[in-house]
Lab assay of single mutants.
Amino acid sequence: TEHYTFHTEEQAQRAAKKFKKQGLPVTIHEKNGKFTLQVN
């Protein structure tokens, strides 16, 4: 499991699309105004 932190939801969504294209499951969590992208 890898985690990436982004300052905006837009950045997180863009990164999520790249991972999803590779067939990886992705979840985004919002915490304290930051967005954490979790790749399993």
Rank of each mutant, 00 (worst) to 15 (best):
H29Q: 11
L24S: 04
H3Y: 15
Q11Y: 04
F35I: 04
K34T: 10
A12E: 00
E9V: 12
N32P: 01
Q22E: 07
L24A: 04
A12Q: 00
E10D: 08
H7N: 14
N32L: 05
K20N: 08
Y4I: 07
E30R: 08
K17G: 06
L37P: 01
A15H: 05
K18Q: 10
A15S: 04
T36N: 06
E9Y: 15
T8V: 03
K21H: 09
L24Q: 05
A16K: 03
E10S: 07
K17T: 10
E2N: 12
N32V: 02
K34G: 06
Q38S: 12
K20E: 14
K21M: 13
K31G: 06
E2P: 10
K20P: 01
A16S: 05
G23L: 03
F35T: 02
K34A: 08
F35W: 15
Q11E: 15
N32K: 04
F6T: 02
T8N: 07
F19P: 01
K18H: 12
V39Q: 02
A12S: 01
H3Q: 12
F19V: 03
F19D: 01
A16L: 08
H29R: 10
N40L: 13
G23H: 04
Q38W: 13
K31A: 12
T27W: 07
K21L: 13
E2V: 14
N32M: 05
T27Y: 07
K18S: 07
E9Q: 11
N32C: 07
V26Q: 00
R14P: 00
Q22V: 08
L24Y: 11
E2S: 13
H29V: 14
Q22M: 14
H7T: 12
P25T: 15
H7K: 10
L24H: 07
Q13F: 08
A12W: 01
T27K: 07
T8S: 08
G33Y: 02
H29Y: 14
E30G: 06
V26H: 03
H7L: 12
V26T: 07
R14L: 12
H3G: 08
T1W: 13
F19W: 06
F35G: 02
Q11L: 08
F35A: 02
K18A: 11
F35K: 01
V26F: 08
A15K: 04
H29S: 11
V39S: 03
T5V: 13
Q13R: 12
K17Q: 13
A15E: 06
T36L: 13
G33R: 02
I28D: 00
L37H: 01
K17C: 09
H7S: 12
A12G: 00
K17E: 15
I28E: 01
T5L: 09
I28F: 03
A16C: 12
V39F: 12
T1E: 09
K17L: 14
H3I: 14
K21E: 15
Q22F: 10
Q11N: 05
P25A: 15
Y4E: 04
Q38M: 13
Q38L: 13
E30D: 05
K31N: 12
T5D: 06
Q13N: 08
T27E: 10
E9F: 15
V26I: 07
N40W: 13
P25G: 13
F19Y: 08
Q38I: 15
E30N: 07
Q11K: 06
E9D: 05
T8Q: 03
F35N: 02
G23N: 05
K17M: 14
N32S: 05
N40V: 12
K31E: 13
K17F: 07
T1D: 09
F19K: 02
L24V: 11
I28K: 00
A12Y: 00
A15V: 08
Q38H: 12
T5S: 07
V39W: 07
P25V: 15
V26W: 04
V39R: 01
K20D: 05
K18P: 05
K31R: 10
P25Q: 15
I28W: 04
P25D: 15
K18E: 12
A15W: 09
K17N: 12
H29N: 08
Q11S: 08
K34M: 13
E10Y: 08
G23M: 03
R14Q: 12
T8I: 03
H29L: 13
L24N: 04
H29W: 11
K31S: 12
I28V: 06
K31Q: 11
Q11P: 01
V39I: 12
G23Q: 03
T1Y: 13
K31W: 13
T8D: 07
G23C: 05
F35P: 02
Y4F: 10
F6R: 00
H7M: 11
N40M: 11
A12L: 03
K34N: 06
A12F: 00
F19N: 01
E10L: 09
Q13I: 13
H29K: 09
Q13D: 05
T36W: 14
E10R: 09
E9G: 04
F6A: 01
E9T: 05
L24M: 09
T5W: 13
T36Q: 10
H3W: 15
Q13Y: 09
H29I: 14
T36G: 04
H3L: 12
K17Y: 09
K21W: 07
L37I: 11
Y4W: 11
K31D: 11
F6D: 00
L24G: 02
E2T: 13
F19S: 02
Q38C: 13
K18M: 10
T36Y: 15
K21G: 08
Q13M: 13
T36C: 09
Q22G: 05
K34D: 05
R14I: 12
E9H: 11
H7Q: 12
P25K: 15
G23E: 02
E2H: 15
Y4A: 04
L37Y: 02
T1V: 12
G23S: 03
F6W: 04
K34R: 09
H3A: 10
A15Q: 05
E2W: 15
Q38R: 07
G33C: 04
G33N: 04
Q13L: 14
G33F: 02
A15R: 03
A16D: 01
K18F: 14
K17A: 14
F6Y: 10
V26A: 05
V26C: 10
N40K: 08
K34Y: 11
Q22W: 11
T27H: 07
N32I: 01
A12M: 03
K17H: 10
K21V: 09
K21C: 09
L37A: 02
T8E: 04
I28R: 01
T27V: 10
Q22L: 13
Q11D: 13
A16T: 02
T5K: 05
K20T: 10
T1R: 11
K31P: 00
L24D: 02
R14E: 14
F35L: 03
T27M: 08
L24F: 12
K31I: 13
H7V: 09
K20Q: 13
V26D: 00
P25W: 15
F6G: 00
F6C: 06
H3R: 12
N40T: 12
K21I: 09
Q22S: 06
A12N: 00
A12H: 00
T27C: 08
K34F: 11
T27R: 06
P25R: 15
V39N: 02
T1I: 13
K20G: 06
Q38D: 07
Q22N: 07
R14M: 11
E30H: 10
F19L: 10
A12K: 00
Q22K: 10
L37Q: 01
K20A: 10
L24T: 06
T1N: 10
K21P: 02
Y4V: 05
G33H: 03
E9L: 15
T36F: 14
H7A: 14
T36M: 11
K17W: 11
F6Q: 00
T5M: 09
Q11V: 04
P25Y: 15
Q11M: 08
L24R: 08
Q38E: 14
T1A: 10
E10T: 07
V26M: 03
V39G: 02
G33A: 02
F35V: 03
H7Y: 11
K17S: 10
E9I: 15
A15G: 03
N32G: 07
T8A: 03
E30Q: 09
E10F: 06
F6E: 00
E30I: 09
Q38Y: 14
N32D: 14
E9S: 08
N40G: 15
F19G: 00
H29F: 14
L37F: 04
K21Y: 08
V39D: 02
N32T: 02
N32W: 04
N32Y: 05
F6S: 01
I28L: 06
F19I: 05
E30M: 09
